[in-house]
């Protein structure tokens, strides 16, 4: 039984790595049949596979199209497991508002960061691309967002990031701000008052986590506290 479970979790991770939606669906159904904790299946199966994908991306074995397909497989698995998860808990997931600033319609980098942060346990609110400055301020205020992520791919729009950061401050919103995208440098990020700078998708998760280092709330699917919170609430078995 124990070996079977590990085998199923491994195959779940492998389905994600192999970008195989069908397999992810099938194995997730097997998880339910074998009465394996669906949270464990997400954490030690799907999310673990996605971690490996991130590694492959860092090592330039996988590129953007592969990540997108792996993420699809991961989400397909999660969809199968979702009905068997206990209702949303009261734990404090960090809220993240993410978008591409006005004038730039490239959002592939933003979409990847969203997937990675989502996978790392952040609650993602995606404003899309070509987002007016005020929309960031309004949403961050409404949600009391913990983090605002701004992305641009063009030199011509990076100044908009500064406007957003200044307006957030003017509006008295204390969300941290992480910036990233092609033309941005660490110096630029610092100059415009950003709290974090993510050089690329692979480091975005690390940077986002580091911004909340001193906070002891469970941040990710993988933290032990989080697991125990879920288990104490009864799980599904």
């Amino acid at each position: 039984m124990q070996a079977d479970k590990q085998d199923i979790l491994n195959r779940l991770a492998q389905a994600v790595i192999n970008m195989d939606i069908t397999r992810a669906n099938e194995i997730a159904a097997e998880v339910i049949r074998c009465k394996i904790d669906p949270y464990e299946a997400i954490m030690d199966g799907l999310a673990k596979g996605m971690d490996k994908v991130n590694e492959l991306f860092e090592n330039e074995e996988y590129f953007v199209p592969e990540i997108l397909l792996c993420a699809d497989a991961m989400y397909a698995g999660i969809e199968v497991l979702r009905p068997y998860l206990p209702k949303e808990g009261t734990w404090n997931k960090k809220k993240v508002v993410i978008g591409v600033v006005k004038g730039d319609t490239h959002d592939i980098g933003k979409n990847l960061v969203k997937i990675m942060l989502d996978n790392a346990g952040f609650e993602m609110h995606d404003l899309g691309r070509n987002v007016p400055y005020a929309k960031f301020i309004d949403t961050a205020g409404e949600l009391k967002a913990d983090l605002v992520c701004l992305s641009t791919l063009m030199t011509t729009t990076m100044d908009g990031m500064q406007v957003v950061i200044e307006d957030l401050k003017k509006a008295g919103i204390t969300s941290s701000v992480m910036v990233g995208g092609g033309p941005i440098s660490p110096g630029f990020a610092k100059n415009i008052g950003a709290d974090g700078y993510a050089k690329n998708v692979a480091v975005a998760v690390k940077v986002a986590k580091s911004l909340f280092q001193d906070v002891h709330l469970p941040l990710t699917f993988k933290t032990p506290e989080f697991v125990s919170v879920r288990k104490n609430r009864g799980g599904v078995r």
């Binding site: 970008m19 953007v64 199209p65 592969e66 997108l68 397909l69 699809d72 319609t105 490239h106 959002d107 592939i108 979409n111």
Partner: peptide
């Protein structure tokens, strides 16, 4: 092509 269709959709179908 990425100006005519969402890049995320396009990049996914490169392989599919």
């Amino acid at each position: 092509a990425t100006s005519l269709i969402d890049a995320t959709i396009l990049f996914k179908v490169l392989r599919r």
